[in-house]
């Protein structure tokens, strides 16, 4: 990693970026052609009006080394934001800041302002437990609990006391499984272990488990990387349906996937947010040379 210094004020607000003259933009491109070159600030439009999640000047450290450098980004309500970038660029780390999953990693330190509906995520009085109930997460590798399918989905509602009666719980489980598109496949074997399902089914079970606690935001960390194309297609469809009710941030290594499911795309490079734009813009007319190099497959 290059040992450049960054000052906090350098994150370029969207308005200013939008009004930049063309000449200056081409300069940005030529400056950034080398994948190891330095990145100053973010190009594109990292901010939006109706932001569900608002991040400003976020820095993340693992012990001494800095994983995220001064990232500012908004995630709009009922929007799917895809985060792409080469391995080790910090997109998963950034995602895990949003529900404070990084707290479980020893030596991890998060700086900057992060807020959910205007409430600080890292505030001194914030209890992570209700926060994580509001911001659910689906992981890279399907990780169903070694319990029955029913108990996997019912786990969240049970610990949060969402359902008081068995019938209510049954309804939540059925609804969640239906919305995850898994109900028809498992309705006859709800008492069988969740670990006995196929990989794609397990991942949909994990999504059902996440939506059973009715979160507002769902974070997905490469949810399809362990799945075959058919299972991937089902999950992508599902993400599109879930967008009606949830705000979704998804990390992915597949650019096609980012293009298919997201409205906005953020490109990370070496711990910095290089470009954020509408997905279509990013994939048809990227502003930054690094973004272009990545999506056209010149590295990454």
């Amino acid at each position: 990693m290059s040992t450049m210094t960054l000052n906090a004020g350098e994150a370029v607000p969207a308005q200013k970026e939008a009004t930049q003259p063309v000449a200056e933009q081409t300069e940005v491109k030529s400056r950034a052609a080398n994948p190891n070159s330095q990145v100053d600030g973010t190009v594109g439009s990292p901010f939006c009006d109706d932001a569900k999640l608002r991040m400003r000047n976020v820095n993340v450290f693992y012990g001494e080394s800095q994983a995220i450098h001064d990232v500012s980004l908004d995630i709009g309500r009922n929007q799917v934001v895809a985060m792409i970038g080469p391995s080790g660029c910090g997109k998963s780390t950034f995602l895990r800041c949003l529900n404070r999953m990084n707290d479980t990693i020893e030596g991890c330190r998060v700086e900057g302002e992060l807020s959910l509906d205007g409430e600080a995520i890292y505030g001194p009085k914030v209890d992570v437990v209700p926060l994580r109930a509001r911001v659910g997460m689906v992981f890279q590798k399907p990780n169903p609990f070694p319990k029955s399918i029913y108990d996997n989905v019912a786990y969240g509602p049970k610990i949060h006391g969402i359902a008081s009666r068995r019938a209510e719980l049954d309804e939540i489980v059925e609804n969640s499984l239906r919305r995850a598109g898994l109900w028809n496949e498992v309705k006859d074997r709800l008492d069988k272990p969740g670990t006995g399902l196929s990989g794609g089914q397990q991942q949909r079970l994990c999504i059902a488990r996440a939506i059973a606690v009715s979160p507002e935001v769902i974070l997905m960390d490469e949810p399809c990387s362990a799945l075959d194309p058919i299972a991937t297609a089902r999950i992508e469809e599902l993400i599109d349906e879930l967008r009606e009710n949830y705000t979704i941030a998804i990390v992915t290594h597949s650019m096609q996937q980012a293009a298919r499911v997201s409205q906005r795309t953020a490109y990370f490079h070496l711990g910095k947010l290089v470009e954020v734009n509408d997905t279509e813009t990013v994939f048809t007319n990227p502003e930054h040379d690094l973004t272009e190099a990545y999506i056209t497959g010149r590295f990454g």
Partner: peptide, 22 residues
């Protein structure tokens, strides 16, 4: 596996719920 703990914590379990139930 850590992924099971992450899964439980990600659903908003407390540490002790994660230990006891998962």
């Amino acid at each position: 596996p850590q992924s099971l703990r992450d899964g439980a914590l990600g659903l908003g379990s407390t540490k002790s719920e994660t230990v006891r139930k998962v």
